[in-house]
């Protein structure tokens, strides 16, 4: 329960900036992020050097979009442990020496660990940059344009908004619980049922009330209102959508390092 609500929505807060990256069409950003990840993941498992130029892309976008590096790094560190565990095994198993610099021998396992870590950095940052530069409603409207079923998009939107409500509720319940118990750093498993169970009941009722209130005010009567606000692709958008994948593919194929 360490994460505050401010932290949950901090990335979204950045998406209200107005830089050249923010101004790109959401479709372009969504597709480019996806293409970037597919290309990054397609590099071979020892291909550390091949991946390095990809760092250029994320760094440039990060700087242009004015996204603070520390914020991305913090989230990358959260994602790190599993990748590290899977990669560290390679170090012990794959001991074939590859290069020796002085008395230090670098094995294939170390290279593949480094590759996994760099690769996960690139993937994580690509996704976070997408979210930090695109409004939430832009993303969901784009999903609608991609013909994702309405019910999925709607649930997706609502979960995202309900999280704040639920975390606030859960937090105050948690505080109340901790204040009444001695020397505990979590909820006793015996009380977990009534704790979450009560949260379930409370929020089901809340959700139905909120939803009725929304319907009374006209929600869902004429389809999502902001869908009409999605703008057309400009020449710049098309250029970005064509050029970035070409450059990335070229890097993938030419392999400059």
């Amino acid at each position: 329960m360490k994460m505050g609500i401010g932290e949950i929505y901090s990335l979204e807060a950045l998406s209200e900036n107005n830089t050249c990256i923010h101004k790109l069409h959401p479709r372009v950003k969504l597709l480019c992020a996806f293409i970037f990840i597919v290309i990054v993941v397609s590099y071979g498992r020892y291909d550390f050097l091949g991946l390095v130029p990809c760092v250029l892309y994320t760094t440039v976008v990060m700087a242009l979009a004015e996204v603070p590096f520390s914020m991305l790094l913090k989230r990358y560190l959260v994602a790190l442990p599993f990748c590290f565990l899977a990669g560290i095994a390679n170090v012990f198993i794959d001991r074939a020496p590859v290069i020796t610099i002085g008395s230090v021998t670098i094995t294939a396992g170390i290279i593949s660990l480094a590759t996994i870590l760099l690769r996960s950095y690139l993937c994580v940052v690509a996704v976070l940059l997408l979210v930090a530069t695109t409004c939430f409603t832009d993303i969901t409207n784009q999903l609608r344009k991609f013909h994702v079923p309405e019910i999925i998009v709607e649930v997706f939107e609502m979960i995202y908004r309900y999280i704040a409500v639920l975390v606030t509720d859960a937090k105050s319940m948690y505080h109340a619980y901790v204040l009444r118990s001695v020397k505990k750093n979590g909820i006793d498993i015996r009380h977990m049922g009534s704790f979450v169970g009560y949260l379930v009941i409370k929020s089901f009722d809340n959700a139905q009330r909120v939803h009725s209130a929304m319907i009374v005010r006209g929600y869902g009567r004429s389809g999502p209102i902001h869908l009409r606000m999605v703008r057309k692709m400009t020449v710049g958008d098309w250029l970005y959508l064509v050029l970035v994948p070409i450059v990335l593919l070229a890097l993938r194929i030419v392999h400059p390092l």
């Binding site: 709607e154 649930v155 609502m158 309900y162 999280i163 409500v165 639920l166 939803h211």
Partner: peptide, 13 residues
């Protein structure tokens, strides 16, 4: 829809 959404948010929480 609202029930699904709130349950999802609940699992997240």
């Amino acid at each position: 829809v609202p029930i699904m959404a709130v349950s999802g948010a609940m699992v997240f929480t």
